[in-house]
């Protein structure tokens, strides 16, 4: 009964969120809209990281590389090879996911600290390739004039239209992820997080499950990356480096590692902090470092859950028992 009510509340909250997302851009401030587009893009990557880190218990400190792969593959295919941008996006997603799946098998022989280092190293290697393979990627100066997405005669070339596109994808990704978490696969993921040996003893091929989830998270990252490339129209290596990987971890931690919808909250918090603190220089990074430490120590469930706990404690104290 309680879970039913909680489910209702959740559905209401999600419905409210969706309505809010639809009306927000109507305020007409171009700056806010562009910030919201970036938040949506980052939220898509963050959900994947939550599935991987929060639900399956596997660290990735190289998620930005998948984001970059998505962006570069979509950009290069659509510009250099004149592929239809939607097709280029699909290829980018599939190729990145396939790559992640393939490296999942060697990399998931590692656990904990070693896995963290391996993913960190992988992220840096791929980043170096973005920088050095300049005849393909444009190298340091960047890759210009990426075409934009369009359907029929309608081009997603305004911020408003791109906003709806990004958030449409984002909501779809959230629902898909929620469904997976509530399924047989989701159970296997949580089982792996809690005890790998027990999972194996029950017939779960843990490396296979982990590789699949890595592939899924990479697919999300590539989707987000290609959206980013089409939105900005220009890409260069810096946004896909180590720091962004850590920033993604911060988004996941703030939203709650094992929380699908929290990813939006995490992405929004981190992005908005960056925007607000921008005039003061790089203070945002200082803050993210602090946030990561403080949140993971005080409330490993994330800020949303942490606030929920406080609320529950308060209401228990206030209600006459």
């Amino acid at each position: 009964m309680l879970s039913l009510i909680r489910g209702r509340v959740k559905m209401l909250a999600i419905a409210a969120l969706v309505v809010l997302l639809i009306i927000i851009p109507l305020q007409g401030n171009a700056y806010y809209t562009s910030v919201l587009i970036i938040i949506g893009i980052h939220a898509i990557v963050t959900v994947g990281l939550c599935l991987l880190m929060g639900y399956t218990g596997q660290v990735s400190l190289g998620q930005a590389a998948f984001y970059g792969l998505g962006a570069y593959i979509a950009a290069v295919l659509s510009k250099t090879y004149h592929l239809n941008p939607w097709l280029a996006m699909a290829v980018a997603i599939i190729a990145t996911a396939a790559f992640a799946f393939a490296i999942g098998f060697p990399i998931f022989r590692l656990r904990g600290n070693y896995l963290a280092m391996a993913t960190l190293g992988l992220g840096i290697i791929i980043w170096i390739l973005f920088r050095e393979l300049d005849w393909i990627t444009g190298g340091q100066p960047g890759f210009l004039d990426i075409p934009t997405l369009s359907i029929g005669g309608f081009a997603f070339d305004s911020d408003l239209s791109f906003y709806y596109l990004v958030w449409g994808f984002c909501i779809a990704v959230m629902f898909i992820s929620q469904n997976i978490v509530n399924s047989r696969i989701g159970r296997a993921m949580r089982a792996i997080r809690d005890s790998e040996s027990a999972s194996q003893s029950l017939g779960i091929n843990t490396i296979m499950v982990k590789a699949k989830i890595l592939a899924l998270s990479a697919a999300y990252a590539a989707l987000a990356g290609s959206l980013y490339a089409y939105y900005v129209g220009f890409i260069d290596p810096p946004p896909f480096g180590f720091l962004f990987s850590i920033r993604l971890v911060a988004m996941a931690v703030v939203g709650g590692l094992a929380s699908i919808w929290g990813a939006i909250f995490g992405a929004a918090t981190v992005r908005l902090l960056t925007e607000f603190l921008h005039p003061f220089g790089d203070i945002d990074t200082v803050l993210f470092g602090l946030l990561l430490m403080v949140i993971i120590i005080l409330s490993p469930q994330g800020v949303t859950r942490g606030l929920g706990d406080i609320w529950r404690r308060l209401s228990r104290r206030l209600s006459p028992s």
């Binding site: 971890v249 911060a250 430490m293």
Partner: peptide, 8 residues
């Protein structure tokens, strides 16, 4: 995550 946060 703690030591990464510290590094950052």
């Amino acid at each position: 995550i703690i030591t990464i946060g510290g590094a950052l």
